[in-house]
Simulated scan of single mutants.
Amino acid sequence: MAMGPDMRSYRSATVAAGAGVLDEGLRAYMLRVYNWMASGLLLTAIVSYAISHTGLINAFYPLVATPGGAMIREPGILAYISIFAPLAFMLVMSFGVNKLSTTQAQALFWAFCGLMGASLTNIFLVYTGQSILTTFFVTAGTFAAMSIYGYTTRTDLTKFGSFLVMGVIGLLIAMVVNIFLHSPAMQFAISAIGVLVFTGLAAYDTQRIKADYVQYGYRFGAGMAAKRSVYDALQLYLNFINLFLFLLQFMGNRRN
């Protein structure tokens, strides 16, 4: 999540450039961002489904015999690589925003989404396909509603940014702690807070992108806008994925 939106800059540029011209460019830019995000989600879904429903699942989650003789799937080396690799890609994209070319940023985005698909393969091992699909549509509806709100509202959401960042940090700490505690009550609280935080981020980041367009799109031209749209799409993509995963813990039906 980037810094809060500069709404004063947006209003000033609207007056200077002409509301019609700026709004037309903004709509085109937001459409590009959403197209990147949707394409990334589609790639993630395809990779995740393909691995979980073909023989590739054995490379990521091989069958292992338990002491009782039952066969269960345990994460292998490829599974662990797919889980941690997206973090490395995200760091490269974040710190290389001014150094990477547009083509490089786009290639990293596709690679990141593909690896995320591989890392999410295990949800098909834990939850039923029907509940995963239902949760996805609920996530899509919730995200769309909050993103539209963030785009259309006249309320400055900047003041909520620090609370949302603190919420993300708190979630990460709580999730690490619960790895050792294995507390169902704590896991429930983490999931509930996670849904609230990433629902809020969907609106907050949409408004931030809208305001940042003035700086990265109108002021610096099409070249910067093309590259920046990939980074903005990545942020919305991450909000969507996290919201989906937290909702899945409430709505997902576990396999027997």
Rank of each mutant, 00 (worst) to 15 (best):
G252Y: 10
L78P: 03
V214S: 13
R154C: 08
G223P: 06
A140E: 02
V195C: 04
T128L: 04
V214E: 05
Y237S: 00
R154K: 15
Q207T: 03
R73D: 04
N35M: 08
S229T: 02
I57A: 14
I193A: 15
Q187E: 15
S101F: 05
L91M: 13
F180A: 11
M93V: 06
R154F: 03
M93S: 11
G200N: 05
L236F: 01
A70I: 03
T135Y: 00
L243K: 04
R32A: 10
A16Q: 14
I179V: 11
T102P: 01
W36L: 12
R73I: 10
R27S: 07
Y213S: 05
R254S: 06
D232T: 01
S12L: 12
A144P: 06
Y231K: 11
R27Y: 02
A211L: 11
M116I: 07
A211D: 14
K227R: 15
L31Q: 09
V168D: 09
G96C: 11
G150F: 04
K99T: 08
I123K: 13
S229V: 03
L31K: 12
A85K: 02
V195W: 02
E24K: 14
F84N: 09
D6Y: 01
A118G: 12
D205C: 05
Q130G: 06
Y149V: 11
I83F: 12
L133Q: 08
G117L: 02
A222S: 13
N122D: 11
A19Y: 01
F160M: 15
F60I: 08
L56I: 04
G25K: 14
F163P: 06
G223K: 13
A203N: 10
D156R: 12
F124H: 15
G167E: 03
C113M: 12
A85Y: 10
L245N: 15
S94H: 12
A192N: 02
G129Q: 12
E24H: 09
T153Q: 07
F143P: 03
F60C: 11
K227D: 01
Y34D: 14
Y149A: 14
G117I: 01
S82I: 05
V64C: 04
A17P: 03
A70H: 13
I173H: 05
G117W: 00
D205W: 00
L164P: 03
V21K: 15
I51N: 06
V177Q: 04
I123L: 12
Y237R: 01
A226Y: 00
A174L: 15
Y237Q: 00
A233Q: 06
I193G: 08
G200E: 01
T44D: 05
A88W: 05
V64I: 09
F244Y: 14
S131E: 02
L247E: 02
L247N: 07
A85V: 05
Q249S: 14
A105S: 15
L247T: 03
F84H: 09
S131Y: 00
S94Q: 13
V33I: 13
D23N: 13
G223W: 02
L108K: 13
V177W: 01
A222L: 03
